[in-house]
Amino acid sequence: MKKCHAATRLMSLKHDRPLTLGERAALRLHLAMCSACRRCDRQFELLHRAGQHFTPGDSDDSSEP
């Protein structure tokens, strides 16, 4: 099983390049078992979406703050 630290590396990496099949499987397996990492994964997603909020119209979300 992937340890949490290694799992966060994959959670981060998936925002920067497509994960390999093996990496995806390992991450999915770890997330299924670890609630703290599931939260971390959602929070990295939120950071990703937060970044898109700064520029108008770049993302699907075209709402102006």
Binding site: C4, H5, A36, C37, R39, R42, Q43, L46, R49, H53
Partner: peptide, 23 residues
Amino acid sequence: FQQNGHWSPQARPAAWGDPDLSL
């Protein structure tokens, strides 16, 4: 993180509530 790669107790991620609300 602890030596074994698990979260340190004080650093374990907590729930943030609804992400859509956060933004």
